[in-house]
Design a binder for these strands. Structure first.
Lengths: 141, 141
DNA sequence: CTACCCGCTGTATCATGGTACGGAGTCAAT
DNA sequence: ATTGACTCCGTACCATGATACAGCGGGTAG
């Protein structure tokens, strides 16, 4: 396993060098020690794995703080699968709520697009009128 | 129409005083002139209407920059309903794309929740494994 | 030998949408 | 007369997730 410099690790994880350093500052990963022999730090092994984990969690909608929690679980001695499942369930609920909010917004837009003549002066624009009178249903922004 | 101070306008529009000043700094609304007679500025009439408009646009998912565009249309001499409709259609597309991305995320979470035993040690956790190997489909975050 | 890329470090900046605070002035009620 | 509520103004700060840049040093390629 050839030593991975930060640049190679970044490319391998599909993120930027600065992003890795940002994660270090945020405590998501530990900065590898400088080799006693000098030279660049080694981002291979567990560190690269953690970087990939962060990328994967991000794809699933986890925030960095939540991802940090999952990473902490990974290292907790008594952590169980149930803990992870609870996090995933909570996230699923959040995502579902966002979907519902956005769906309401989309439907409102559809309704307005249907009601708007689409030509002529602004005075006849159903969309602007609706925004002004603000009788649209609220969404989880 | 009794003169609306900034505080009353804020309550009336359901936002904070600081938020109104923030919108002024951002150019979304013009700061009303100080009355020659002294005393507080008057946020009634068109200004309050604009504040409500901003709140309505926000509920429909428009960003402040986009809302500024809509407000500019409201004042443009030659603006037509078609311009507004184009913005709304574009926003609908964005919202739809976000919904699809989130739906993929939700489905991934469902799949993982189904595959995960939900008890036992982390070594058996399908969720963590999946995050690490990152074979989940990407989402529009 | 020099250019150039890379790593290392610290700090600054960006976008987004606000929120908070300090200090001064004004106004009405007690 | 003093308190309290409010405005006004400027500036600073928050979270989130990065991104950029300056300045130093080492190794390699031409």
């Amino acid at each position: 396993m050839a030593a991975l410099t930060i640049g190679k690790a970044a490319r391998s994880a599909g993120i930027g060098v600065e992003t890795i350093r940002f994660y270090e500052r945020k405590g998501l990963i530990r900065q590898p020690p400088r080799p006693t022999a000098g030279g660049p730090r080694d981002y291979g092994g567990g560190t690269l794995q953690r970087l990939r984990f962060i990328a994967g969690a991000k794809r699933l909608g986890f925030s960095l703080a939540e991802t940090a929690g999952l990473l902490a679980l990974l290292e907790a001695p008594g952590a169980s699968c149930r803990d992870v499942q609870a996090q995933a369930k909570a996230k699923r609920g959040e995502v579902q709520a966002k979907i519902e909010g956005l769906t309401r917004i989309r439907d409102s837009l559809d309704r307005l697009l249907g009601a708007c003549p689409g030509k002529g002066s602004l005075a006849d624009c159903a969309i602007l009128e609706a925004i002004e009178s603000a009788e649209n249903s609220g969404g989880t922004s």
